[in-house]
Amino acid sequence: MPSLTKKLPTRKMKNTGTGFRTAAIGAITALTLALTGCTTLETTAPSSERARTAAGAPARFGTVDCREARCIALTFDAGPSENSPRLLDILKREQVPATFFLLGRRHIDTYPELVRRMADEGHELASHTWDHRILTELGPDEIREELRRPNEEIRRLTGRTPTLMRPPQGRTDDTVHEICRELGLAEVLWSVTAKDYRTNDSALIRERVLEQASRDGIILLHDLYPGTVPAVPGIIKDLKERGYVFVTVPQLLAPGRAEPGKVYR
């Protein structure tokens, strides 16, 4: 099987409020990454990670084998929020697991009971940093602190330490990779975005996800925005009708396993 690893150019940029969002490059779906030519961002597709494992190996997570099934992963950034209980109710009713990239300040520390509920109901918990600071603009010690604090809180609340993180705005570089490797974290970006941070139109959010969805897709949504959670039932219904099976990010990579310091999309 040919490698699906993709390389994209990146650089550090100051946060100007609007200038760091760009259109998709080639076949990559629109990402909120600032892309130029300083360093090289190498990302690994789920199928490439699965292919690294010997043929015939059992899937490591659950009963779904994404080497055979048409898998797709729902991921939610920057929660928990006041909308999370309704989202969790929907996911429970539909028997859909999700991966939550949780934010620390004003989220984990404000809704600890929702963090526990997410873990208890079988969802994958990961880090979206403590303060949502742009990691490529920080020094190494500041990056470590942004990544260390949410992991410690999630471990305290659930007994499990996250192994995945998502950098704010998808902005990452070699320093972030190295610190993630040091802390035992793999970075997870996305291949589908509804840009729900720009609209409260639930129908539009649903439409955007369905237009971009494909096998091994990683869908980026934010449950803190009011238009997102109402769009989720329709997204689930339509994708199930198309034959998709919902999995967490670790399930999507199985029987491979996310490697610290690597970037997955």
Rank of each mutant, 00 (worst) to 15 (best):
P168S: 03
R11H: 08
A258Q: 08
T10A: 05
T29L: 09
G261A: 11
D223I: 01
I25S: 13
T248K: 08
E121G: 06
L4E: 13
A51E: 13
S84E: 06
L221F: 00
R52Y: 07
I154C: 11
A73V: 07
A59T: 15
S127G: 08
R171P: 00
K240R: 15
T199D: 04
Y264P: 11
F20S: 14
I205V: 06
R86E: 15
R171C: 13
D65W: 03
E124W: 10
R257P: 02
G170V: 12
R21K: 07
V245F: 00
H132A: 00
E121L: 10
A30C: 02
G256L: 01
L138K: 03
N83K: 14
A27L: 08
R117L: 08
P46T: 08
T248P: 14
T22Q: 15
C66V: 04
D120R: 14
W190Q: 04
L87H: 09
R171V: 01
W190A: 01
G26L: 10
V96S: 05
A34I: 05
L33C: 11
A45Y: 14
G62Y: 06
A194P: 05
D201H: 03
T248V: 09
S84H: 04
A213H: 02
L189P: 04
W190I: 00
V188H: 05
D77S: 10
T10Q: 07
A258K: 10
P226G: 00
L135V: 04
L220A: 00
F246I: 10
R215H: 11
L8W: 11
D196M: 03
L185R: 07
D174V: 09
A24S: 13
E113N: 14
W130V: 02
K262F: 13
P97W: 06
L189S: 09
G184D: 11
G217A: 15
A57R: 07
L41C: 12
F76G: 05
Y264R: 07
E178W: 04
D173R: 02
G37W: 05
G184N: 02
R155F: 07
L221P: 02
I28V: 15
V64Q: 12
E146N: 01
E241A: 15
Q251P: 03
I143T: 07
W190S: 07
W190L: 11
M118Y: 02
Q95R: 15
E124Q: 15
R133T: 01
A51V: 06
P226H: 07
E182F: 02
R144K: 10
H132R: 01
W130K: 00
P250M: 09
D131P: 00
R242E: 12
R70D: 13
I25R: 15
R60V: 12
A194C: 02
G122N: 15
T163P: 03
R171W: 09
P150D: 08
T199P: 03
L88I: 12
M1Y: 04
G19Y: 03
Y244M: 05
F246L: 03
T163D: 09
Q251A: 11
L239F: 04
K240M: 01
G26K: 08
K262T: 15
A23M: 10
H107M: 08
K195V: 13
R198S: 14
L87Q: 09
K195C: 09
T75H: 09
P230E: 06
A73C: 12
V188K: 06
